[in-house]
Amino acid sequence: MMKKKMSRHTMPAMITIVLILFQAKANAQIAIVNTEPDSSGRKWSVYLKGFVQADAMLDFQQVGAKDGIVAPSIVIPQHNSMSSYFSIRQSQVGLGFKQTDKDGGSPISAYVEVDLYGSNGTTSPRLRHAYVQWKKWLIGQTWSNFSDAEIFPNIFDFNGANGAILNRSMQVRYTEKLSDKETLSFSLEDPGKVSMTIPGNHPEWKKKSMIPIVTSMYRYGNTKDYVKLGGTLSPVNYENQEKGYTKIGFGGIISLRKYVNSFDNFRFQTSYGKGFARNNLVLSGEGYDAVLDPQSNTAETLSLFNIVGIYEHWWSPKWSSVVYYSYSQVGSNSMVTNSMTKRFQNAAINLIYKPYKNLRMGMEGNYAMTENFGDIKANAFRLQFSTSFSFK
């Protein structure tokens, strides 16, 4: 740790070097600055966290998404075409600021994180998280309150189980600690995240952002074993030249993790609702919250069911494997087109070697299948070889 202040030239240089060379996948972090406590015992710290990951992928069928498995992106009809892809775009770096009081609490903190998942396949920085926390309040962009980032195990794939509920959102969140094991949180989130499908021959209709999304999440457990119960109300707002309309979607989630011994653990998640597809890992922004019926001036919310099961096993302190399965199904109505995704699933297994605390390497096999409302199916298989180095 360094207790001297960084110059205005040193800080940008250090951040640039870390962004290029390092990356971290858990809660690994490295301290940059720690100030001396003031008269009231408060002090400030600045830290970096992240990881550098290099991936080599081999696809046996044509898929639209390269960096992570996205089952709905598999080309329909089936197109068996082998291809390889190399990437460092998963790499991430975050910069945090935190005030610590004399009791060890952190009443004020801020965090910014980027990855290299730029648009159009570039490796330009993309903002992932940017938020400020003050006591029980959080303001900014981070994982939606109606999400569970804890469900993800030791894997390499950028997406993992496609049926998981996980997305980032601008929000205002309030969290209350009910007991040593219980927390309850509520949020108002960006209504622009809601997406709907509007027929191309009706340009007079458009989606608009108006009423915030409302979420709640209850968590019971400790740092290892827990269960989460959550709910969301997701307004779908749309209009033509004459009038605006609102349709209310909803969703519920159960998510848990249970350790069977010191290392092995089981994770499970299921969710169901209507008009809440924005929360799904791979359907967010794809128009599956609602479908517009211009004849009746009504947006019909689409139902969505997801289920995910994950098991993580450690063969030894340095060797581990994860196996998981995920299934999702979209509900139908009269406005759904045959080209839209009806159901999708993916399953994976890996073998990871961790010779040092900060270094992981291994391989992962992922199978995915998709089916559209025209009852046409396609599947894909991917092999991924990865190495990641985190810093602390």
Rank of each mutant, 00 (worst) to 15 (best):
I349Q: 03
F373T: 03
V322Q: 03
S321N: 05
E364Q: 00
M369E: 15
S326E: 03
S328V: 05
L359F: 12
T341I: 01
K342L: 10
D375F: 13
N346T: 05
R360E: 03
N358A: 09
Y324E: 02
G374V: 04
I352D: 02
S332T: 13
T387Q: 13
V336N: 09
M363W: 12
Y356R: 06
G374P: 07
S386I: 04
M369Y: 06
N338W: 10
S332H: 15
S388Q: 11
R382F: 06
T337E: 12
M340Y: 07
S320H: 04
Y325P: 01
I376K: 15
L383T: 12
L359P: 02
K377F: 02
N350Y: 03
P355S: 06
L359D: 09
A380C: 04
Q345D: 06
S386P: 01
T370P: 00
G374R: 08
L383S: 14
V323C: 03
T387I: 12
Y327V: 02
V330K: 06
N372M: 05
K342D: 11
R343I: 07
N338G: 14
G374T: 05
Y367I: 00
N358W: 00
E364F: 02
A347P: 04
N346R: 10
K357N: 15
L383A: 06
F385I: 15
V336R: 12
F344G: 01
S388Y: 03
S386C: 00
T370L: 04
E371S: 11
G331Q: 10
E371P: 01
S326G: 03
K354L: 12
S388G: 08
R343F: 07
K342M: 14
Y353G: 08
L383W: 13
G365C: 09
S390V: 09
Y325W: 07
G365L: 14
Y327Q: 14
Y356K: 01
M335V: 06
A348F: 00
T341Y: 07
E371T: 14
N346V: 03
S320G: 10
Q345I: 01
V336L: 07
L351M: 15
N366C: 08
Y324N: 00
M335S: 13
L351N: 11
A368I: 04
D375K: 15
G374S: 01
F373N: 08
S326R: 01
G331N: 00
N372I: 00
M369T: 15
M369V: 10
N338T: 15
R382W: 03
K342C: 09
F381A: 04
F344D: 07
V336S: 12
F389V: 14
Y356W: 15
N358S: 14
S321F: 07
A368H: 09
T370S: 06
N379H: 12
Y367W: 15
L383Q: 11
M369H: 14
R382P: 02
A347C: 10
S321D: 02
M340W: 04
Y353Q: 08
V330W: 06
G331K: 02
M361H: 11
G374D: 10
F389Q: 09
S334N: 14
A368G: 08
T387P: 09
R343N: 13
E364N: 06
Y325D: 07
T370M: 09
T387Y: 05
F373Y: 13
G331C: 01
